[in-house]
Amino acid sequence: MKSNVYMFLLGTMCLLLLSCGEEKLPKPRAMLRLNYPAPVYEDLDMDCSYTVKKNKMVQIKNAKYTRPCWYNMYYPDLKATVYLSHYEIKNNLDSLLRDAQNLTMEHHIKADGIKNKEHINEEEKVYGTLYIVSGNAASPYQFYVTDSIKHFVSGSVYFDARPNYDSILPAANYLQNDLMHFMETIQWKN
């Protein structure tokens, strides 16, 4: 009987010694790492009252509406579109600014936050704001640029996917740089 107890204790100790080791934990789910090519910019000279530099990956498409200088910049690799609209200022700058800001604020229901980056270039007479909408809002970016006398260009970014902030963040960051470049390089023709 004593030998059975000793055998049991010896077996238990061996089992404990063998089971002591590195604990196995499940690995976390991997996230897809998205890398996009460095942007290469070229002139975009539409039949509009301004010129701008655009990313070469962009495909220009006519807007759904047939208004002059309304077009879409489509990013096939990002599955995103920047919808651009040009308005001629006719004593309505306050109204255009209010509309641009209200369009951004419509996203506050789903947004975690809205920040803005102002752009001012006194020399070229370019004044604008980029609104950065974080969270699962439909549009992560809204912006406008104006000379405050004749021209007002507004833009909105939408992805061809259900809003999921974490999933679109790499593409959204890439687009933010392009939008800032757009605002920095726009020049009025007249």
Rank of each mutant, 00 (worst) to 15 (best):
119 H>F: 13
91 N>E: 12
95 S>K: 15
99 D>H: 10
138 A>G: 00
77 D>G: 03
123 E>G: 08
120 I>Q: 07
87 Y>T: 10
80 A>F: 05
122 E>G: 01
108 H>E: 09
95 S>L: 14
126 V>T: 10
131 Y>N: 08
107 H>S: 15
114 I>C: 05
80 A>C: 01
82 V>C: 03
134 S>R: 13
129 T>F: 02
97 L>Y: 12
141 Y>M: 03
91 N>A: 02
126 V>Q: 07
128 G>H: 13
136 N>F: 04
128 G>I: 04
118 E>D: 14
124 E>M: 11
115 K>E: 13
137 A>I: 09
133 V>G: 06
137 A>C: 00
85 S>F: 05
69 C>W: 00
87 Y>H: 14
72 N>W: 09
76 P>A: 02
87 Y>E: 09
135 G>I: 04
126 V>H: 10
122 E>D: 15
74 Y>L: 15
68 P>Y: 04
112 D>S: 14
71 Y>R: 11
124 E>P: 00
67 R>N: 13
75 Y>L: 10
85 S>Y: 00
136 N>W: 06
100 A>L: 03
80 A>I: 00
112 D>V: 05
95 S>H: 14
127 Y>A: 08
134 S>N: 15
137 A>Y: 08
132 I>H: 00
81 T>V: 14
127 Y>V: 08
108 H>F: 04
97 L>N: 10
128 G>K: 03
141 Y>S: 06
103 L>D: 15
137 A>D: 02
141 Y>F: 13
98 R>F: 08
140 P>N: 03
75 Y>H: 07
136 N>C: 03
93 L>E: 02
115 K>Y: 13
106 E>F: 12
118 E>G: 08
119 H>A: 06
122 E>I: 15
71 Y>M: 08
92 N>T: 07
104 T>W: 06
83 Y>Q: 14
74 Y>Q: 13
142 Q>F: 07
123 E>P: 07
90 K>C: 08
91 N>I: 01
78 L>S: 00
124 E>R: 11
144 Y>M: 02
86 H>K: 01
123 E>I: 13
87 Y>D: 10
76 P>N: 09
95 S>W: 08
109 I>L: 13
119 H>K: 14
78 L>A: 10
120 I>V: 14
72 N>G: 05
98 R>C: 06
78 L>G: 01
144 Y>V: 04
99 D>W: 04
109 I>N: 00
89 I>F: 11
73 M>L: 15
88 E>V: 10
86 H>Q: 13
110 K>M: 14
84 L>Q: 13
129 T>L: 07
122 E>Q: 06
110 K>E: 15
105 M>I: 03
79 K>V: 00
140 P>K: 12
97 L>R: 05
85 S>V: 00
73 M>V: 00
115 K>M: 11
82 V>W: 00
136 N>L: 04
90 K>N: 15
139 S>L: 08
95 S>A: 11
82 V>G: 05
137 A>L: 11
100 A>M: 11
98 R>T: 12
97 L>K: 03
131 Y>A: 03
113 G>V: 02
